[in-house]
């Protein structure tokens, strides 16, 4: 099985900043992939992307840069999907 490592940065698209609905949606999406996914914002990291709490605790505001890093067989897809959620304005 290939172990891709994909890194991509995205800017938070919602004027309210990264909120709990997005965090929950990210966690749900992350749970569907086999890859390990880590989110970073400045020096804060969400090591377990299946935990909405960890994502929330990035504390990413509107326009903040979040780095998505995925390692695993479906890393590319995972990164794309999470990026789409984070970049969206609700």
């Amino acid at each position: 099985m290939t172990q891709d490592r994909i890194v991509r940065s995205v800017r938070i698209g919602d004027p309210q900043g990264l909120h709990i609905r997005q965090a929950a949606e990210c966690a749900r999406a992350a749970a569907r992939f086999h890859s390990q996914i880590v989110l970073r914002h400045g020096d804060r990291r969400a090591e377990n992307c299946r935990s909405p709490f960890d994502i929330l605790q990035l504390g990413a505001g509107f326009g903040a840069e979040v780095v998505i890093e995925a390692v695993g067989p479906d890393a590319g897809e995972a990164v794309e999907e999470l990026a789409a959620i984070l970049a969206r304005a609700d």
Partner: peptide, 19 residues
Amino acid sequence: EKYGEIFGAHAALIEDPGL
């Protein structure tokens, strides 16, 4: 749906494995 999602998010937080 959008308002319902708030409680969907609560459910996800309640089930948070880290918590």
